[in-house]
């Protein structure tokens, strides 16, 4: 039973990790890649860690919990740091009709007051 659970969690983790990596390959700029990379990647790694700790002993469970908690706090900070660096250095969004409410105020009629 636990072996089946571990298999299912492993495959789920692989699927999520693959989606994350494929998103980085396919999406055009750093901003959109961030969505795919850190988030799908984070859940994928969490699933793999859960698979490792399903039938595991206390030491593995404690460390897996610690790593997941740590990643849950650090991945948003890391993504924010990358996004802010890219934004401040003026990296362009490469999608043809990307929304940008921070520049060209007159060109953006949907901007809120």
């Amino acid at each position: 039973m636990t072996a089946v659970a571990a298999d299912v969690l492993t495959l789920l983790g692989l699927l999520l990790l693959t989606v994350g990596v494929y998103g980085v390959v396919r999406l055009p700029d750093a901003y959109t890649q961030l969505h795919s990379a850190s988030k799908a990647g984070f859940l994928g790694v969490a699933a793999l860690l859960a698979a490792a700790s399903v039938s595991g002993e206390g030491a593995i469970i404690a460390r897996a919990f610690l790593i997941v908690a740590l990643l849950a706090v650090t991945t948003p900070v890391a993504s924010h740091a990358v996004a802010r660096a890219a934004y401040r250095r003026g990296e362009r969004m490469r999608t043809p009709n990307a929304v940008n409410e921070t520049k060209d105020r007159d060109v953006q009629p949907t901007r809120s007051p």
């Binding site: 999520l16 989606v19 994350g20 494929y22 799908a40 934004y87 043809p96 929304v99 940008n100």
Partner: peptide, 20 residues
């Protein structure tokens, strides 16, 4: 996001918005 990455939903209008 997974559906968008796998071409099942479009990624044609990403962007930066302001939130008060």
């Amino acid at each position: 996001v997974a559906l968008r990455v796998l071409h099942l939903r479009p990624v044609d209008r990403p962007g930066i918005i302001r939130v008060p």
